[in-house]
Design a protein around this nucleic acid. Structure first.
Lengths: 294, 294
DNA sequence: AAGTGGTCTAGACCACTTT
DNA sequence: AAGTGGTCTAGACCACTTC
């Protein structure tokens, strides 16, 4: 072993002889001065080379991926909170005993995944849902005319229930686990446009009441982030066309049978852990779902 | 001026003194040995700093962006065709008189935009729609159960018409310009699921006939790419829920009024030039539109 | 063994923001 | 002036593919 707790695996002694001009001592990188010395798992490298690899390195993981994982852990643990400045590249490089370029590559990927935001001259900030920019990240419904703006919410129902089988399966809970159920209608310019049902794990969102939801101004994900320490970082959505049933028709003030977009969305936090199931019905007579393909 | 035609603007003589260990002569980079000496416009940098910039550099564009633009031009001009290998990073670096790292960063962005594909040990290839991987890039409709596979096509109508006003506007043509109109139905496992109308600029797709469409096996974008030299690289889609009208109901063998997903998609080729308008109706009783949000 | 892309380093300078 | 991220370079070695 190296000095103290060497958590970073410098695969096959890579880049040890890379120091050419200066005669510095290329000490093997160590994960020093970090509070949580969690082992680098080297997982999720590409897809699934689970079988005993053919060549030398069975579980190769580039240094910058290990750094990325360490930074992600600090984000997850709340060492750096949403909206806050994280240490500079130079400081992180020193802390992890790697070059600034390696830290940069790690942060580049985190920025591409919207976990952090870089601002030249200022630093790198932890992303937050308390920003105009973030408000429409998961809501792709935009008005046919005019500029997008955030809808008003009216809560219909908030209660603790036991997870039905289908909900439990999608949220990776056990059937019957405690979940919080929320039903609301959202209005654009006073026009009811979205009716939405949410399920949240009861364990994480203990203490979430109708009152707190009504009090809170701004996007729900902001409340989740600030009050419950749970940040949604990714979502998977399935969309269908359906007809309005009696309930939706009444809430949206439309005729029975009006075509609606049906969205079933599972949101994930760090570690690909599902923490929200959201089923929405969108009225698309004056709005549309916007998607950019590339 | 420098040697011959110096097209690359090395802003503010950047990185001239960056050569530290070796005493090489840091000749200002030039776009040498490239067949089409098109001027680097430094456009599309970010959004639109059209106003006379406040600070020193009015139209700052990093070197790697200029390299990226040059490579894109070679892709657009057909110097390197879809599926082909492009020159290695080392060779491009020599050709453009920049370091390999700069070329790498340019290609990294092109790979992120799916214009090229990198394969370690082999090289960098021009992307093509003739690949299983590319077939579902613009078609997000996947079966509720089972693995995705490409649908069969049945063409209903193919004709040359004059562009209606709305079509012309979306395709940036003049109203009345010649366009090719295509109507088809697509079947998954024999079940009619998509009815789709396409408009293509008549000028580009001259000679596209029903016969060639029927003959051609594989995705239409493959045909466009190979036979008409037009590659779709990006698309913008608007989705709504609608009810099946008589025409759609008959073609999809469903009841009148069945809810359908309506998709209006504009596809773009190099230079953000719109080259296709596609209006589709998707039956979502056994399929759904899948979207990953981040 | 040679060639390709992928990783890593060290150092320089630029653009931007704040002090 | 100092600090941050952004660009650029040069060189080394690794992983992968092909010869």
């Amino acid at each position: 072993m190296n000095s103290a707790s060497s958590n970073l695996t410098n695969n096959a002694t890579a880049a040890s002889g890379a120091v050419s001009p200066t005669a510095g001592t290329p000490a093997t990188p160590v994960a020093a001065a970090i509070s949580t010395p969690v082992a680098v798992t080297a997982s999720s490298n590409t897809t699934a080379p689970a079988a005993p690899a053919v060549t030398a390195s069975p579980t190769f993981s580039p240094l910058y991926q290990q750094i990325k994982a360490l930074i992600t852990q600090s984000l997850q643990s709340g060492e750096w909170k949403p909206g806050e400045l994280i240490p500079s590249e130079v400081e992180l490089a020193g802390r992890f005993k790697v070059s600034q370029g390696t830290v940069r590559k790690a942060i580049d990927e985190l920025a591409a995944e919207n976990l952090v935001m870089r601002r030249q001259g200022k630093g790198t900030f932890v992303s937050t849902h308390h920003e105009a920019r973030a408000h429409f990240r998961f809501l792709r419904l935009v008005p046919d005319e005019g500029v997008p703006h955030y809808p008003e919410s009216k809560f219909i129902e908030v209660k603790r229930v036991r997870a039905p089988a289908d909900v439990a399966r999608l949220m990776e809970l056990k059937s019957g686990d405690a979940v919080i159920f929320i039903k609301r209608v959202q209005y654009f310019d006073g026009v009811p446009t979205i009716v939405e049902e949410l399920w949240l794990p009861g364990l994480i969102f203990k203490g979430l009441t109708a009152e707190r939801l009504v009090e809170y101004k701004g996007p729900m994900y902001g409340l989740f982030e600030t009050e419950f320490g749970t940040r949604m970082i990714r979502a998977s959505e399935q969309i269908r066309a359906v007809c309005a049933d009696a309930g939706a028709a009444q809430l949206l003030n439309i005729d029975l049978g009006t075509p609606l977009l049906s969205s079933e969305r599972v949101s994930f936090t760090y570690g690909d852990k599902p923490v929200e199931l959201r089923r929405g019905l969108y009225l698309t007579s004056r709005h549309h779902y916007q998607n950019e393909l590339s």
